[in-house]
Design a protein around this nucleic acid. Structure first.
Lengths: 322, 322
DNA sequence: CCATTTATTCTCTAAATGAGTATAATTTGG
DNA sequence: CCAAATTATACTCATTTAGAGAATAAATGG
């Protein structure tokens, strides 16, 4: 799953007319001080990216080269996210097609020294409504809910109103529904559709009452970031990827705080420990933490062997033994 | 998740030199007569595909257009699979880069009449080792195991031998391990690496003792098909996508047989029923089947409402209530 | 009517999950 | 040095879910 790439098709006449510009773009994630952060460039409002060039051996190596050049950061774990190609989601129009192939990279924030243009930034700067670690953030009730209600009311008649309202309610957990932390992309797309994010209004006249929600990014980078967050929030649940973000040795609490930072939710401490233990994902290093107050915690390391042993979780289909 | 696309990047000088040819390629799946089949073109050894052109509104609409033109088949549900760009996996070398953006489409085999070049073909023709509905297929013990052992033995020394053997054992369930039906792509890649599939030997001199395993496809289409099968086998477990493959009304057994066809494994009938029922995925139509022997089965239909109600399964993180 | 076939419902046990409570090992303020 | 305070770790208990199979129901074909 971590290394897929290849060209295809048999000798078809090269259709130069349709050739496209291909960009590689990276969502590089680290967690430091209980804050999930993303690697940015420029005015801290762009993801590292660059064109896929003839010199690149593969998509992945092209991506690594660009990120390293632009941020000085070397990537470890990466996986492909999604390939975008909409014309209408970019401000300017061009004659030529642009394809963006996005990747998710997991890393630790330290790594390589020296002065560089790299800037880590909490992803909740861009998505303030996504952090529910201390309850639902006020921005939802104060800003988003009223605005979304207005957007629902744009519709004249009932079935259409209800459809909009239901979508909003599912995405944000209104009407007593549960908050679902995985719906990052749906929420962003809804806000985009309701024109509650700055980038949705770029083509139009500057409306001073907007924008309102979070820091925006250039082009559609915020959408790509949303895609990455959604993927990661989903993936930590069934694959041991959190450990890519951890130092070599860590305590249970540190691990828990990392998961909480990513998912934007608090987890139940004893049950979290039980979950990790029963899956045998970690082993004791023998050391304990010294620096803290309270009872010192044992240090653990990730059991890399699990990557070989059980490639994947379990079934979920009620298989028959026959 | 079903409709994502967009262009990116701010005004960077168009780097014509690096422009790439972009192909769209479809894994179109249907299940008929308990056989999972894939839509092919050409000599029934190619997936429908075509270049992404300026006239296409989006990647998805371009894909739909090509499939419709080449097969006369109209697509319903589609989702993006993966974007490939390896140079070394295609027979011929070219100066220009080729990007293949692949999609998975789910449909029903009937649909549109008239003469057409479309051909449905069981995916097990291409992956005979993947069908475990009547136990492990003989090809594994008879052909693959000995060949893989020889491949393991190519390595001179122990740690390297062990590493190869462990990979094979995990992928194919040797050494008393369980068969994991989701590892379709890993298995294919392993066979490719061990040169046990025809396409792995295309650059080299024709070795008569090979090829051996399944029907091959042009270029890297078989790899893309493997990617699609793997995705589908994984996805049916946590999202109600099987219903895209079912007729409007169906019995529990038909539904079960469809799941079995896709996963290549038999499921436990009462527990399968319980699973579907407790998730309230279906409702009775009121009719029953007439044509069969034995007790007539009730007919059910998919409750489309579930797509709105619960967008997604559940948590899997031990959340705290606070 | 009886054997056969398929459908549907139950039962029972073992695991996994959710939610707390209890106990252990430290540090820190007096 | 002792009593909070603080964090870590271990247990408990009820509830749900999953795995495996038995029992019952409703047809068909003689």
């Amino acid at each position: 799953m971590q290394d897929q790439t290849a060209a295809t098709r048999k000798g078809r006449p090269p259709a130069k007319a349709h050739d496209a510009h291909v960009d590689l773009i990276a969502v590089v994630v680290a967690v430091t001080d209980q804050e999930p952060s993303v690697l940015t460039v420029g005015q801290a409002n762009a993801l590292p990216s660059g064109p896929f060039e003839l010199g690149h051996r593969s998509l992945q190596s092209g991506l690594r080269a660009w990120v390293e050049q632009q941020t000085g950061h070397q990537l470890g774990y990466i996986e492909q996210l999604y390939t975008f190609a909409d014309r209408d989601r970019i401000g300017e129009q061009r004659q030529q097609r642009v394809i963006s192939i996005s990747y998710l990279a997991l890393t630790r924030a330290e790594h390589a020294a020296g002065p560089s243009k790299r800037a880590w930034r909490s992803w909740y700067d861009f998505f303030p409504w996504e952090d529910h670690r201390s309850g639902a953030p006020p921005v939802i009730a104060d800003t988003l809910l009223p605005r979304l209600l207005a957007w629902v009311d744009e519709r004249d008649h009932d079935p259409l109103k209800r459809e909009r309202w239901q979508r909003a309610a599912i995405a944000f957990g209104f009407d007593g529904r549960d908050w679902n932390e995985e719906l990052v992309l749906q929420r962003y797309e809804l806000l985009y559709e309701a024109a509650l994010v700055e980038e949705a209004t770029r083509g139009s006249e500057p409306n001073k009452s907007l924008p309102i929600s979070g820091i925006s990014m250039i082009a559609d980078h915020r959408r790509i970031l949303a895609t990455g967050i959604a993927r990661l929030r989903s993936k930590i649940k069934y694959r041991p990827v959190v450990f890519e973000l951890m130092p070599p040795a860590f305590t249970f609490l540190q691990l828990q705080r990392t998961v909480e930072a990513l998912s934007g939710r608090l987890v139940h401490k004893p049950n979290f420990r039980r979950l990790i233990e029963q899956q045998e994902l970690v082993e004791e290093t023998g050391e304990t933490t010294a620096d803290t107050v309270g009872r010192p915690a044992k240090l653990f390391r990730f059991r890399h062997a699990v990557l070989d042993e059980r490639v994947v979780a379990g079934t979920k289909l009620p298989l028959s033994r026959a």
